[in-house]
């Protein structure tokens, strides 16, 4: 009992509950995805006995490459838009007086904490053919009578950005808040213009936050299926839609697992690369 907060036993005692829980309900299931991909399907939507390569072979389905490509570019474009909005907004926010920051932060966090379905639903109402935005644009003569705002990749992109923007905004803001704005004055003193200051002083300063935010947006978009399902048309499906369709409509869990497995491995590789890069730069900073 001498050093209750330091000993090896204490470490295990404190660590075990969460570690065990996450091992059982997170690490093990993630591994089971890969296992399920090599099992045959059974008729009730479960896993059959024995082993089968059917689900893995099904990955070669000719419709998939276009699907993967669409998922990737929608996610990348959404990520870029989120960053393009989050960087100037984070910069501006961090320079505001403290009290104003709190109010604005609430205006960012509130939509973020609002039920995800409701947020997508709000956009569906907004973009609906009989909805306010369509009416407004038609009255202004910008939109012709038969153009739909809904059910196209533009709608999917807009809602993807809407849903994920706080994921980019909050880390960038957190980094910008820790940023020493005197550096910008120093850069100006040395003759740097506004863009130069933003690109070569502010951006490297908040780079870690922006990177973390971008990664959160990217992974979130890659696994998205609700947004394309609700505001996209049949041509705007993403890989997530196919996974859900295989798991629930087609009752083919192994094929859903095979697709998820590919996504999982790809994301883990990206995350590992990011972690390695961060450790590398941390080591360099430590020198």
């Amino acid at each position: 009992m001498k050093h209750v907060f330091r000993g090896r036993t204490t470490e295990w005692l404190l660590t075990t509950p969460s570690l065990l829980w996450l091992a059982i309900f997170f690490a093990l299931p993630a591994g089971l995805i890969l296992m399920a991909a090599f099992r045959p399907a059974d008729l009730h939507g479960g896993l059959g006995d024995g082993w089968s390569l059917a689900a893995v072979h099904a990955l070669a389905d000719p419709s998939y490459p276009a699907l993967w490509f669409r998922t990737l570019w929608l996610s990348l474009v959404a990520t870029l838009i989120c960053l393009a909005l989050a960087l100037p907004a984070g910069y501006h926010l961090a320079r505001l007086p403290r009290r104003r920051q709190g109010v604005i932060l609430l205006l960012i966090v509130l939509p973020f904490l609002t039920n995800f379905l409701i947020r997508v639903f709000a956009w569906k109402t907004l973009l609906h053919p009989d909805g306010p935005l369509t009416r407004l644009l038609q009255n202004c003569g910008i939109l012709s009578e038969d153009t739909l705002l809904l059910y196209n990749s533009g709608a999917v992109l807009a809602v993807l950005v809407y849903v994920h923007l706080p994921f980019a905004l909050l880390p960038v803001y957190a980094a910008a808040e820790r940023f020493d704005f005197c550096l910008l004055d120093a850069a100006r003193d040395l003759g740097a213009g506004a863009w130069k200051r933003f690109w070569s002083v502010f951006l490297p300063g908040v780079g870690a936050g922006a990177g973390a935010g971008a990664l959160l947006v990217l992974t979130g978009c890659l696994g998205q299926y609700v947004v394309p399902q609700l505001v996209g048309g049949t041509d705007n499906e993403m890989i997530g839609n196919r996974i859900v369709q295989r798991a629930f409509s087609d009752r083919n869990l192994p094929e859903a697992a095979a697709l998820s497995g590919v996504l999982l491995i790809a994301l883990l590789l990206v995350l590992m690369a990011q972690a390695r890069k961060r450790r590398h730069s941390a080591r360099e900073a430590g020198l």
């Binding site: 997170f26 993630a30 995805i33 990664l215 997530g240 697992a257 999982l264």
Partner: peptide, 21 residues
């Protein structure tokens, strides 16, 4: 890693993982 990963992976994968389990 076990704490951070669930935040970094999309919910869809977590759902699939738990469904598999």
């Amino acid at each position: 890693a076990l704490i951070v990963l669930p935040l970094a992976l999309p919910e869809l994968l977590m759902g699939m993982a738990l469904l598999s389990l």
